[in-house]
Every structure is written in structure tokens, then in C-alpha cells.
Amino acid sequence: MPILNINHQSVHIQELNQNAPETIVLVHGMFSNLSVYYFSVAPILATHFHVVLYDLKSHGMSEKTLSGYDLESMTDDLKGLLDTLKLKQVYLGGYSFGGLIALKMAIRFPNLIKKLAVIEAPDPSDEKARGIIEEYSREFLENYIENFTDTTKVKMGKRQMEKNHRMYEYLFHQTSIKDDMILEKDFFEDSAINQLDQDVLLLYGLTSNCLDAGKNLNQKIKNSSIQIVDGDHNIPIQEPQLIGEALLNFFQRK
């Protein structure tokens, strides 16, 4: 299992087509892990690019950490990953919470990011988007896993249920993730978003609760385009081929 030590933490990564000259880094969402891309979107991109996937802290097979879930810390981790892999400039994509991390990364380190793809990033000021953090309960968890989990559409059995429950319990009740997210509520008001220079592709689902966030970003970012696809917040699971090809076309375009 490829594990790197980044900012004093163990980080699980996976790489595809390591010999390609240009690199795409993909960031997954909250309560998910790199497998959301590994078998579907990543192999499509790896036909032309070196693809790097990693598990965020306390997710997948990366080390558990009590604090540092704000976008500044999350992008420190991503910067550490690029440094460790000696990647000077990359194409970057992020899904959901990973989309916010990707946006923040392009703002903080514009010279490192050639192009940016944001998939279904929510507006952190939207109470509904943050609501899952506050309304958390066992019943809610069961409903969430059954309907919204973005790693599989299979209804979970006992072992998976308990494994996921342990992750939610840990993230919600032991780490600073709740507080860190609330502190990011004005992120879309950051004027730096309006000053992004890179080409930005926004991918959103037609019936997603986050679609307005995508339209909002499209108005703020000068070199952006929005592509709305059939589906809801789970478009990378619902339409992996379409998302993979949209990303490939966007990153390949000169």
C-alpha cells in the first residue's frame, strides 16, 4: 500500500500511468475516499495523464487526525503531497468538499495549478449543505448511507455499516471538522475567487442541491464554464464515463 509521510502524517496515495509527462491530481469528498475515482474516472484520465489520488486525513487508509479540517490546512496537506512527489505544476480536480479544497488550492498556489475542475462543490454558507454536520444521528446516518454515500450504490451490510458509523462518530465527535467547516462559511465571498486566472470547469448535476453553488461560482470566476449533467450530487457515481470524458477533454484542450 503506497503510504507517504506528509506534514508528519501517513497519507495513502494511488498513482496511475506514472510515466505520462503531465499530472492530474484528484481530491475526493467528505466521508469518502480515493476509490470514488479509482475504478472509474481515474482510468479514463490515465489514458493520457499521470493520475494521482490520495485519501484525505481520517478518510480511507490515511492516518486519523483530530484537527486541521479547514481549507488552509487541507491545502497545506495537498501542497505537501505535490512537494513530496516533486510535482511542479498539475491539473487539479475535486469533488464536493474536495472541490472546495481544489478551489482553495488554486487561490493559494496559482502557479502550481494549470487548470481546475470543480465537481459539485457546495456553498459552505448554505445551511443545508452544512446541515448534515448538525443533524447527525444514527437514523440520519442510516438514511445517508442508503441514499447518499458516494462510494457504492449497494445497500450496506452490518460490517460496512459499523465501519462507516465508526468513521462518522470519529469525525463528528472527536475531531474539529464541524467547527472547521463552520469557519469556512464565507468562503464563496472571498474576493480571491473572482481573481482566479486559470480555466475552470464546473461540473454539476441537474437535480443537485448544489447546482446554485455551481452557477454562483460560474458568475464569479472569469474563465469558467459550467457543464450540467443528468443526475444529483452523486454524478461521479451516476455518470462516471461522462465525468471522466468531460475532465479528459477539458484538461487536454490547449
Binding site: 500500500m1 475516499n33 480515493l34 476509490s35 480511507g60 449497494v154 452490518k158 460496512q160
Partner: peptide, 14 residues
């Protein structure tokens, strides 16, 4: 893999 062994996708990656 998914129903009987209850393996999720990150376990299938491993």
C-alpha cells in the same frame, strides 16, 4: 464481493 463479503471500494483497491 459486495453482498457476501461486504467489501467496499477502498477494500477492493487494497
Amino acid at each position: 464481493f459486495t453482498k457476501d463479503l461486504e467489501m467496499d471500494s477502498i477494500e477492493i483497491v487494497s
